[in-house]
Design a protein around this nucleic acid. Structure first.
Lengths: 127, 127
DNA sequence: CAGAATCCTTAAAGATACTG
DNA sequence: CAGTATCTTTAAGGATTCTG
């Protein structure tokens, strides 16, 4: 009994669920994390792409667009040729980085325990 | 520069990504959270169902099966009629509850800032 | 370099009905 | 009460090609 209101009101649209939605898109958290932890909050498209093993160009751009629409990152384009585009964490983005880093930190310090986690047998496609 | 190894090795299968995968299944975190926060770690199927607004019976059972296969919960069935089944957090499950609660706590204390988050326009189906 | 435009393949999710 | 069995729908993700 910590805060007083132990009778938590369960709405379908509560703050936790909104955050979880962000986590549910595969690349969202990884992009925000990489932007923060590897590029100090701002990076060009190509650099970002190279820092994210496994992502396709399409998913990178698409997720960046969604992050921009959500107000988590800002897109800065210099009208040169060839074009130079940077993506930077917005203030709201820097806030959202907090829970993401919490997860990353927790995962790293508990990585050995996580080895016991039985992996899900999804997408067992042969190479 | 905190830990020393700032040159983080990026593998596709690292601890953070494994945790994020759990978060990517819609109901996983909510079930674990509910089990922990509303039922003290153990609950019967029906009670759990009633505590999770919006979930279908199929998704509940299906996700419970996956959580069980991952070793996060244990299923206890009494062979009576009608059957009485309980699901309880395993030790590993209690561990995984930690990051989930971190997210929930963070989301609640930052709920006002989260209002600025532009919702994604997915599933705009009319009722 | 950055991105748009297609096409395609899978899962995730949900609705519904049936069973012991 | 707890669970299975189907059947749809939709979205997520990915591969590839083209453009300024």
């Amino acid at each position: 009994m910590q805060t007083g209101s132990d009778e938590e009101k369960w709405e379908e649209d509560c703050a936790p669920r909104r955050v979880l939605e962000l986590f549910s898109t595969k690349w969202t958290s990884m992009i925000l994390h990489t932007l923060h932890a590897r590029h100090d909050g701002i990076a060009r498209t190509g650099a970002l792409h190279r820092s994210l093993p496994g992502i396709s160009k399409k998913m990178l751009i698409q997720t960046l667009r969604e992050l921009q629409a959500s107000g988590l990152i800002e897109r800065h384009a210099q009208d040169t040729v060839p074009p130079a585009v940077s993506y930077a964490l917005s203030p709201l983005g820097k806030l959202m980085v907090q829970p993401i880093e919490m997860i990353y930190d927790w995962a790293r310090t508990n990585s050995s325990a996580l080895d016991q986690l039985q992996p899900r047998s999804t997408s067992r496609r042969r190479p």
